[in-house]
Nucleic acid binder design. Structure first.
Lengths: 137, 137
DNA sequence: TTTATATTTGCAACTCAGTTGCGTTAACAG
DNA sequence: CTGTTAACGCAACTGAGTTGCAAATATAAA
């Protein structure tokens, strides 16, 4: 059993050909993935519905997490090994490139400590930085 | 000439009945506005195309700015008086309520100073906090 | 190995936000 | 008052994402 196969089983997901390919694609991918990019890389044989459903079950399991996207399109990245279905927290910022529209996880930038405001309850923080990525600079 | 009429003229926009109403709606609104909410408040007589076009010209002029939305729907808030078509910078965080899905500008929370990462150029920062708003707490 | 069952897949059809083209209307400058 | 240009409204479209359902297949149980 390969690592990706084991990972899928561990999360209670079935080892279908498509899901193995999808998981490997995430593992071999430097940056984040959109449905369009997944179609490009995996081939157009699989229906978009299958992709959407696989993504949402991967996300629920804690294998991947959704990241912001410039064009408000679904975009995902692999989680660190500490994630699971009940604890899905990330402490890094996200970077969106103004030119290539790509989103990257910036593990080296921590989220700021926010002092609570009276009347509010803060639960999650997302820090998005826009600019030029190394490829486009 | 009313303040809102003057504001529209100043930005080179025409004082149509609809745009005056829309601008006043923003000025009298505590929180941010979506197209749906605008339809509710202004009445369904105006076409959605008219609303979208008015919003994007208001945004281009620096009257309003787009704010994040939970459901990836267009959402806007009035800018401070320092904004215009060439300088459209905001230094506050945005809050999204998990329960009522509303977004608020948190003027009291400043954006963190980000140390640049080699190879990148950072231009804009967006800080989004999720949780419960005073109404839903 | 076979069988049962629950998950996954693929197709078609749909929803819903937002856009485009275009002819008409109305603001406003001259 | 008139010509120009911005704004409006309608219809038709786009594109991401969803839903229902029947067929296929991974996995557990016998």
């Amino acid at each position: 059993m390969s690592i990706s196969e084991e990972l899928l089983s561990n999360y209670g997901l079935r080892n279908t050909a498509f899901r193995k390919k999808l998981l490997k694609l995430f593992q071999n991918s430097e940056s984040t993935l959109t449905v369009e990019k997944i179609k490009d890389k995996i081939g157009r044989k699989n229906d978009k519905v299958t992709i959407y459903r696989a993504l949402s079950s991967f996300e629920k399991s804690g294998i991947i997490h959704q990241v912001p996207d410039k064009n408000n399109v679904s975009r995902y990245a692999l989680c660190t090994s500490t994630c699971n279905s009940s604890n899905h927290t990330h402490h890094h910022a996200h970077f969106i490139c103004d030119h290539c529209d790509n989103t990257l996880c910036l593990e080296e930038i921590d989220l700021p400590k926010i002092k609570t405001i009276k009347g509010f309850k803060f639960k999650k923080t997302e820090l998005i930085i826009q600019g030029s990525c190394p490829k486009c600079l």
